[in-house]
Design a protein around this nucleic acid. Structure first.
Lengths: 138, 138
DNA sequence: TTTTTTGCAAAAGGTTTGCAACACG
DNA sequence: CGTGTTGCAAACCTTTTGCAAAAAA
């Protein structure tokens, strides 16, 4: 019953025109659990015939308007992830397994950090990823 | 008096052979305060005549042995930073100003997170960067 | 002397740009 | 209708690979 996400509404609130490619891209992103590269997302879009260039441009504009965020998995390429729920990752540097986590303490600590900062008085975003070997690879 | 860093010693303890390019690259990295791209580092090395390929390979091996780490500044390219002191960054998304910070609380919180994890039992590394507008740009 | 590293040239891969056609509002 | 968006082709830039020469241990 809660299955249909209103993509048009999302685009409207992001002040982006609702176009076929954008809706298709949003759809793919919303189904994606873990961060993916542009190329990976592109593969999933192949059936739609959407151009790679369009995907690059769309991801850039989505990022600017906060619909997706960039995630660094220490992999020489940038990964994107839907920004609908804020969470972080633990990545196995051997098998690339990813575990998500949320943590409220982090937000508190960040507030302390900002308080101490001389140049900044608030932050809009943050990234936090942990790296190690998972139990299987340890 | 404490000015000379013993680059050879660093390489030895990283189990890397001490070669001219590696020492030159270490030297540049040690002088660098903030994360830099491979290309930026390359420019600083121009006078030494070190090849770009060598730089790429060297940074990769330095990263593997923990001498440098990758930093994601949400900029479509990977930045490297000497790993001699562990700290994090606050980046102004407008003017690119960078402020460093250290925080011990973070490490504590990370330990809690790992305790809760089902797939991981320890981590070797982590990244944390904050993004926002600095006071000048706000 | 054996092994690793380097430099060069070339290839590969990913991302961006220019522009005309098209779609949205 | 005007403006923003798309698709295509080409350009661009960064990173990687193969191999022979040079340097390290």
């Amino acid at each position: 019953m809660k299955k249909n996400i209103n993509f048009k509404k999302i685009l409207r609130s992001a002040k982006l025109k609702k176009t076929t490619p954008r809706i298709a891209i949003l759809k793919v992103l919303s189904k994606t659990k873990h961060p993916e590269t542009t190329q990976e997302i592109y593969k999933k879009l192949k059936k739609t015939g959407i151009d790679l260039t369009t995907l690059y441009r769309t991801l850039a504009s989505f990022e600017k308007s906060g619909l997706v965020r960039k995630v660094d998995l220490h992999k020489d390429t940038i990964y994107y992830e839907s920004n609908l729920s804020h969470h972080h990752h633990i990545i196995c540097t051997k098998c690339n397994k990813i575990e998500d986590f949320e943590n409220l303490e982090i937000e508190k600590v960040l507030k302390q950090i900002i308080k101490k900062s001389s140049k900044f008085k608030d932050i809009k975003n943050h990234s936090l990823e942990l790296f190690g070997f998972c139990r299987g690879c340890a």
